[in-house]
Amino acid sequence: MHTIYEWVAGPLTWIAFLIFFGGLLYRLVRLVTLVRRKEPFIFTYMSLKYGLRSILHWSLPFGTVNWRLHPVLTIVTFAFHICLLAAPIFLMAHAILFKEAWGVGWPSLPDAVADGMTVVVIAGAIFFLVRRIVRPEVRFVTSASDYVLLAIVAAPFVTGFIAYHQFFAYRWMLVAHMVSGQIMLVAIPFTRLAHMLFAPLTRAYMGSEFGGVRRAIDW
């Protein structure tokens, strides 16, 4: 178990983070070169002011007409994404491991709070799963990959939750937790999870078009 732990917590984590950051950088550089080569006008129309204006509205719960049209989804989506980002970053156990490896730490959340946020993420994933099956307009555009992506995102939280509470098979669950987290990190740049990187850019472009050219709002 020592060997597995050291392997997963060491080199595999390195690899996962390198692929994650390297992959995001690669996607970004590819995007920018593609824009330069094929659609340089995008740079012409990009506007910091209108881009941020649009991002800001879409970043506020109920800040847009469509968020207001779907109140339950809006609450779940915002809670899900906030917890998805904040819980792993501010989890004490993660901060401790990072400090042990790098010597720098950061403030962390009480475990009970992070535990609650994990439940929110898992509940959110279940909500999205049910929505995907139940809502015809979502099911119609759903493919197997959508379920796989949802599972990739949910897995680190489910395994983390079970491991934290030590319900069963603690050691294996923790290894599964680490590995599933690494799978998620690696998947982000190369799947539709890349919306983490691209969504602000597409939103900014649409905001720029609407604000700068169309003199209209896009929320």
Binding site: L31, N66, H70, L73, R192
Partner: peptide, 26 residues
Amino acid sequence: ETGARLKVYVDTCVHCGLCSEACHYY
């Protein structure tokens, strides 16, 4: 004839269906 927009739009769409309510046909 296409470039970054087509690629990013296709790669970024998470198939959430939230655009549906916008369309008068739908």
